[in-house]
Design a protein around this nucleic acid. Structure first.
Lengths: 349, 349
DNA sequence: AATAGCGTCGTAAACGTTTACGGCACACTG
DNA sequence: CAGTGTGCCGTAAACGTTTACGACGCTATT
């Protein structure tokens, strides 16, 4: 309601001076600045966002795009701590974080194009990166700073931070091989997600290293959900020559898989070894406890925020990191969901 | 980059006419309107949001405030489908949904005050409603339309939609009593949440109806998380006179509780009966399957959206529902996590 | 003493829209 | 033919800011 004009009249100053005082610009007496700040907080004045955005050509806010039907399955407790970390960084520069939820029905690229054209945000964080992701070209063309959570094969020198799915797969397989497993399956998400591609890459590299032939029938595709995990369990149980172990890219898969095994009277870690991404409250309370990988989502958020700022001309000076392209390391958490291969040899019905 | 001015020059029209054409106002030839729309989509023109907001005094967007450390435990598994429903309704009127995540560290009321003062959104949806919630007074005073997901005891005639936690508790208890249970515990979240208060109310009403004395030692408080559920299990196992059944307000509690029972060699539904809110992918894959309550989150989102529009003067004509204050019904889903009381009599260690 | 410099402040334009208002040409009425 | 209405369009103000620029008074310099 009350704008800067009202505040200026109240103080007997011009709006120009008031504006400079509020924005900590030079050319204003420290004494009057104090007065202005005092009056502003007394009258509860807060600058109108539309006004400043229009004038400055910047909204002072960054968007975090998420998808209702996120095919990577990242939904539950994943994003919240990430938001928190991002926000902490952004608040250092009086930037706001707004989350932009793309409906399951809408095309992500189109949704993004709208918000870009409207100039709703100064920068963007992308998630659920596709192997070929139109959004990257879109943002590059629009010269809008952004960072992708998850790299992509789309060309261009853009910043990204990607969880080390390759390393996770490699280390999972290595651990299983060390326990005597030779037939190790892998669960992958929908084909266009880059995550799955990288995960498979790590899986194959590890097999090769240990002189195990790649068997395409051990690559299982399923929805990134409990249902998908159940389905995978079903598939394994019906195989003529089933694997003795499996690696999963998402903890909810483990829930479904545990459930299917339980229905069959089988025990994870004994009849079928399971190593999964990611440690979560759920993984800790599964029994047997899930062997999985840990990362700090909040720290990931902080890194995302800082890398994003580094790519924004206005703030880059404080973040001299250039174009961040970083693989995020993860720590293995050993549970009881994997065990020696010997135990698994005779579970076939 | 290119504004309406550029578009107008390109067409040889004035910006006034172009604006009217784009906004489907009268006083413009249908023929020229066609030309304008064609040129707009050809040049990829999209109105600058800041410009329109400033002029119209409206942002054409509504905010959905969520909390990183939502004490009710609702994470984005819960919210995503709700967002989707809300968005579907809003899109009918060219309104956008932006999610405003409040950091765990920040005071929700203060966070809200900022976004309100800045006029970032035209209306708001509140979640994690407290029993006494300052945000309601704040929004009422600012005359900003809003709706609360979860009612509150704060005075005022504001719209809300609240899940029927009272009915859930009552029906849970009734079912357990019918199965012979007399010592029924209840798990509650942190004290300031209205949810817990309502849940307790339903619990006590049901006890009274069935002539069971209220035992304060059966009211268990815990964090709304797996950890909290585990803690509850621990507490129950150490009680001198433990309950034979418990009702939970959140499915993650069940995960922790299952885990603790399992550690003790006990079986949910046999040694301890459990009825919980809410059906989710997780509840379906717990074994034994969780007896819980179902609701359509997407429909809830639609209802929230429509009720919010009804309280916005600009759109109220299409939604003649007045101030919506509605208890959202839920359907019981019978699993195997509850059973007859007889089985539970002798599990004490 | 004239000039230059500095600190402080006011003035006014600009950002991209929307919209009230007036103007013009034309058709229709009497 | 004068007058009235109607359909279409342009003009310009307004929304709330920020910021380049100039103005003013004072001090220090030459």
């Amino acid at each position: 309601m009350r704008g800067i004009k009202h505040l200026a009249e109240h103080l007997g100053l011009s709006i120009g001076t008031v504006s400079r005082a509020l924005n900590a610009k030079p050319d204003v007496n420290p004494e009057t600045r104090k007065r202005v700040l005092a009056a502003a907080s007394a009258l509860g004045y807060v600058p109108n966002q539309s006004g400043r955005s229009l004038r400055q050509g910047a909204t002072n806010s960054v968007g975090f795009m998420i998808e209702a039907g996120d095919p990577s399955g990242n939904s539950d407790t994943f994003f919240m701590p990430v938001f928190d970390g991002v926000q902490q960084v952004l608040s250092r520069h009086h930037l706001d974080l707004v989350v932009l939820p793309c409906s399951a029905g809408e095309d992500p690229a189109q949704y993004l194009a709208r918000t870009v054209a409207r100039r709703q945000v100064d920068a963007l964080i992308l998630s659920a990166t596709r192997r070929q992701d139109d959004r990257i070209a879109l943002l590059s063309k629009a010269r809008l700073p952004f960072i992708a959570l998850g790299r992509s094969e789309t060309a261009g020198n853009y910043p990204w931070i990607d969880l080390d799915f390759e390393g996770v797969a490699t280390r999972s397989v290595a651990r299983l091989v060390a326990a005597g497993h030779r037939r190790i399956a892998v669960a992958l998400p929908s084909k266009d997600l880059n995550l799955g591609f990288v995960y498979l890459k790590g899986y194959r590299a590890a097999l090769e290293k240990h002189d195990i032939a790649f068997d395409p029938s051990l690559v299982l595709r399923a929805a990134s959900s409990e249902q998908g995990g159940y389905q995978i369990g079903h598939e394994i149980l019906s195989m003529a020559n089933p694997p003795t172990a499996i690696i999963l890219h998402y903890e909810l898969l483990a829930i479904g898989l545990y459930s299917r095994l339980h229905d069959a009277g089988l025990v994870p870690g004994n009849d079928l070894s399971i190593i999964s991404f990611r440690e979560s409250p759920i993984s800790r309370f599964l029994s047997p406890r899930l062997t999985c990988f840990r990362l700090s989502l909040r720290e990931l958020g902080v890194a995302l925020g800082e890398a994003l700022l580094a790519s924004m001309p206005k703030y880059a000076e404080h973040y001299p990191q250039g174009v961040v392209q970083r693989v995020w390391p993860m720590e293995m958490v050993v549970g009881e969901s994997d065990g020696p291969a010997a135990a698994a040899s005779d579970y076939r019905s």
